[in-house]
């Protein structure tokens, strides 16, 4: 095994220019793709608390008798997507309003009567916090004769989720594109190394080397290039992240969300992915090259 490592490193050193370019290409691909992943992770962090707060306010007609409140609460609590519903009487509503407007008490001082209706506050289960699910529930609620108005002021969450979803799709597409480009570049690098070692490969076959013996150092080389590119890309991302998060912490955004780096499992996956790129590039090159080498397939 040591001889394979020795040969792999020897190849990398002998062809350092092309290998450096390959590592940089992989690193850039990893940097861009993992920057997307980092963005998704942090936007998910941002959106989740908002989504967890997703609620629907249901306002009742003035004439709804008190004895209808309990059956209505049960009926609404049993509706699909509802986590729990709370009754908020008009008095309680006014108290809350006063509490939230305690800095401008004069606004409420001159009220002769309570203008607020009785209401239900509905919290959604996490699975039903999409815009579509909330709309379905709202339609169902509006159909009840006791209900005057349904309000869910967080439709924008749905829109943001859609935008993030679009970004995610773009991220997948970019990821696939960079993956393919990196594989192609590694394949070309290995092909160059193979061509420079064409005679050696022929001699190895002549002296009875198996294909495994010939291929092993090239696969190792691909894995090393992939790992180096992955580590460099992730290192670059970490540096950019540290810089960005330090700046953001000092601004307002720092108080809204706590930025965090890729979890260890994702780092491991990105590294494994970049090594897969190296391996796959080698595989494609070797398959094509060894099929053409003298003595590979006796005529």
């Amino acid at each position: 095994m040591m001889r394979f490592y020795r040969r792999a490193f020897q190849d990398i050193i002998e062809n350092r220019f092309v290998n450096t370019l390959t590592v940089i290409t992989i690193a850039l691909s990893v940097l861009i793709v993992s920057a997307f992943v980092l963005f998704f992770i942090n936007t998910a962090e941002l959106i989740n608390p908002w989504q967890q707060g997703a609620r629907i306010m249901v306002y009742l007609h003035d004439q709804v008798p008190q004895e209808r409140i309990e059956p209505l609460l049960r009926q609404i609590s049993g509706m699909y997507g509802v986590d729990h519903a709370t009754f908020i009487s008009r008095q309680e509503g006014l108290e809350r309003l006063k509490k939230s407007m305690k800095r401008q008490p004069s606004l409420l001082e001159n009220l002769k009567e309570n203008p607020l209706p009785d209401a239900f506050e509905i919290r959604m289960i996490p699975e039903s916090q999409s815009e579509a699910a909330m709309e379905v529930l709202a339609t169902g609620l509006e159909a009840l004769p006791e209900i005057a108005e349904v309000e869910y002021g967080q439709q924008w969450i749905g829109r943001i989720s859609s935008i993030v979803g679009l970004f995610r799709l773009g991220g997948y597409a970019l990821g696939a594109l960079f993956f393919a480009a990196s594989v192609f570049i590694v394949a070309n690098t290995v092909r160059l190394v193979l061509y420079s070692r064409r005679q050696e490969v022929e001699v190895m076959r002549l002296v009875g080397a198996t294909d495994g013996f010939i291929k092993a150092p090239f696969y190792l080389e691909g894995l090393i290039l992939g790992a180096a590119g992955g580590a460099l890309g992730l290192g670059g991302l970490l540096a950019a992240f540290l810089f960005a998060s330090t700046s953001l912490d000092q601004s307002l955004a720092g108080t809204l969300l706590k930025l965090r780096f890729l979890p260890l499992s994702t780092v491991a996956m990105v590294l494994a992915g970049s090594m897969l790129v190296g391996w796959l590039g080698c595989y494609l090159s070797l398959r094509q090259f060894l099929g053409q080498t003298p003595l590979s397939e006796p005529l």
Partner: peptide
């Protein structure tokens, strides 16, 4: 078979 060819070649010095 192709995978046995290396073992044949080890019988020779060329």
């Amino acid at each position: 078979p192709a995978k046995r060819i290396p073992f044949l070649r080890r019988k020779f010095g060329i």
